[in-house]
Write a protein that binds this DNA or RNA. Structure first.
Length: 561
RNA sequence: GCGCCCGUAGCUCAGCUGGAUAGAGCGUCGGACUUCUAAUCCGAGGGUCGCAGGUUCGAAUCCUGCCGGGCGCGCCA
């Protein structure tokens, strides 16, 4: 049982005695250390029900509380009626022991009934290289997936491949135009086509790989060849870019499968059966307004073709049929207006609350204080690969994750390329490497699991006790980040933890304060501090893993010149 | 015009299921420093939380209205 849980159950018992069971017990860690390790507002919340002033209620609660049993050293009524608690040092030692015992599992949880969650992200059209905005979606989607895994959910990472739409026709036409140019024809790329330099490269490669099949092909056959070849080729490129970025999908679900497996007809029949479809103006409409959309939506256009909504509904209906409890989609900001109609359509199928959409806002890249936009390769955007090859994958991922996904972000390339501790990624990784360095220096095997008794009562300084409390917060940070699908909370926590650990380490610089050094002469003190260093190491490593970053044993010095 | 997101220190951003004196990093300023290999460390200054109302014992946080910025509002995808 953790420190909070002990305290919570003790408080709960008292509330029972007072006849106000069921009051929501909020325990929080006060910002101000003078307010103790834990603080609760239960007295203020229940003052109304007891018809007594909050401070009086607080005093009464304290009177009945079994402090020792709750792992509390002292408690006090403060301010308008807060009750502040300070933990016993035995309780602090127990917290650290738990970290050392759980080691690689510290911060993980295993719920009784795990949910099956499909996280769909990136889902870029296979019409060109991935750019930085896709990178943010990739980092965030994978970060959310990892958080859910750490909280015990069963996660499936899925990429929806739009291989059947108009965009693909345009891609094929663009490659075809480039190919005909190679044959000496005057064949301009269609206005609505793809004009990036990479299309020329595709045409040349297709010419080599498909050579003989192209020569005799009719115009429509050649377009089909290009369509099929280019989609496979670009999909493979995207997959390679993502893997090199540390993101691996469990499944690439092609839109064409929705058609091939007859899901369109099934879905339309399902909706029609629910009396939610009607004909008007020569088109077929879905009554999404019944489910909160601001207007009804067309399913089948006047010309008899489907709107993009149809395959999308069919696809998400299929996700539910595949047995997932929850679908999380990470979408670009340009699709946010699409969320209400999609959710309305799913609600129409009895799938309300099945789909959660996380919106990823735009990324601007800042280099040398100026906004960078141009890329030689892609024409009008910076590719994801260009970015992470320049900064390294750890840095790029972290920078995307350290901001909330739903706000626009400025990606400061100068800071990303800075290898000092100004760069938050390196600050955290240095702190980890620093602990590993101490282990090497101290002749300790870091992988070895802790067992037996440790003289943890020797951790007496404020820095040390604060650090233990900080490490104890980690599981709660993971839980909150997962619940809010907000990896940036983990980044904030890691930076704070690294800062505290670095401060602790530096204060023990042997040239200044040898008595504070981790590797102290006193064997017990040394052992206790090494245990704390190991706790720091565990939390930083696990935190970096949650984010999908490496936790280096040592930092490589930059090459000269 | 309507909808969504945003507006917090010079800059980039946390904090937003209401809680005690609003935080971090960078930059600035002032001191130290050559190691427990570690590309430094310590400290200081810096805010009408866009504006105005409202709810509340208590509002950066919730509600309303403005102002400013971004995005979206197709029988396009």
């Amino acid at each position: 049982m953790s420190d909070v849980e002990r305290l919570r159950s003790a408080l709960s018992a008292v509330l029972d005695e007072l006849g106000i069971a069921g009051v929501d017990i909020q325990l929080e860690r006060p910002r101000n250390p003078e307010h103790g390790d834990w603080s609760t507002n239960v007295a203020m919340v229940s003052a109304g029900r007891l018809r007594k002033p909050p401070r009086e209620v607080a005093a009464e609660i304290l009177d009945r509380l079994d402090l020792g049993g709750a792992g509390v050293r002292e408690a006090e009524v403060a301010g308008p009626g807060f009750i502040n608690f300070r933990l016993t040092s035995a309780q602090l030692q127990a917290l650290l022991k738990r970290i050392l015992e759980e080691d690689e599992a510290y911060g993980r949880r295993e719920p009784e009934s795990p949910e099956r969650v499909v996280v769909e992200f990136v889902s870029a059209n296979p019409t060109g290289p991935l750019h930085v905005a896709h990178g943010r979606g990739a980092a965030l989607g994978d970060g959310i997936a990892r958080l859910l895994e750490w909280t015990g959910q069963v996660v499936h990472r899925e990429f929806y491949v739009n291989d059947a739409g108009v965009q693909i026709d345009r891609l094929a036409a663009s490659v075809d135009a480039r190919w005909r140019q190679l044959q000496g024809e005057n064949a301009p790329i269609p206005e609505s086509g793809y004009h990036g330099d990479y299309v020329g490269g595709l045409a040349r490669e297709a010419d080599e790989e498909l050579a003989d099949r192209l020569v005799d092909a009719s115009d429509p056959d050649r377009l089909d060849l290009f369509r099929e070849w280019a989609v496979e080729r670009l999909k493979a490129d995207q997959d390679r870019d993502l893997r090199d970025f540390g993101v691996a999908f469990d499944e690439w679900y092609p839109e064409s499968r929705v058609y091939e497996e007859g899901l369109i007809q099934e879905t339309l029949a399902d909706l029609t059966g629910r009396d939610l479809v009607y004909e008007a103006d020569g088109a077929t409409w879905l009554r999404t307004t019944t489910f909160g959309d601001d207007k009804d939506r067309v399913l089948v256009k006047q010309d008899g073709t489907y709107t993009y909504l149809v395959p999308d509904i069919a696809y998400h209906r299929e996700k539910a049929r595949r047995g997932y409890d929850l679908a999380i989609n990470v979408w670009g900001a340009d699709h946010h207006g699409y969320v209400p109609r999609m959710q309305a359509a799913l609600a129409a199928l009895g799938l309300e609350d099945f789909l959660v959409v996380e919106i990823v806002q735009m990324v601007r890249i800042l280099r040398g204080g100026q906004e960078a936009k141009l890329s030689k390769r892609a024409g009008d955007f910076i590719t994801l690969r260009e970015l992470f090859e320049e900064t390294g994958t750890d840095v790029a991922r972290y920078f995307f994750l350290m901001r909330r996904g739903d706000t626009q972000m400025l990606f400061d390339l100068d800071l990303a390329l800075d290898h000092s501790e100004k760069n938050p990624v390196f600050k955290v990784q240095y702190a980890h490497a620093r602990m590993m360095s101490i282990f090497r220096k101290g002749g300790v095997e870091p992988a070895q699991r802790w067992s037996g008794e440790l003289p943890l009562d020797r951790l007496e300084t404020d820095d040390e006790q604060d650090l233990v409390k900080q490490l104890a917060r980690f599981p709660e940070v993971v839980r909150r980040a997962a619940a809010g699908r907000a990896p940036h909370l983990v980044c904030d926590y890691l930076e704070e933890t690294a800062g505290m650990a670095n401060g602790w380490y530096h204060s023990g610089n042997p040239s200044r304060n040898p008595e504070l050094a981790v590797l102290a002469d006193d064997p017990d003190l040394r052992e206790a501090r090494l245990a704390l260093a190991r706790g720091v190491r565990i939390v930083l490593r696990n935190g970096l893993r949650v984010l999908g970053l490496t936790a280096p044993d040592r930092m490589e010095r930059e090459e000269q010149g």
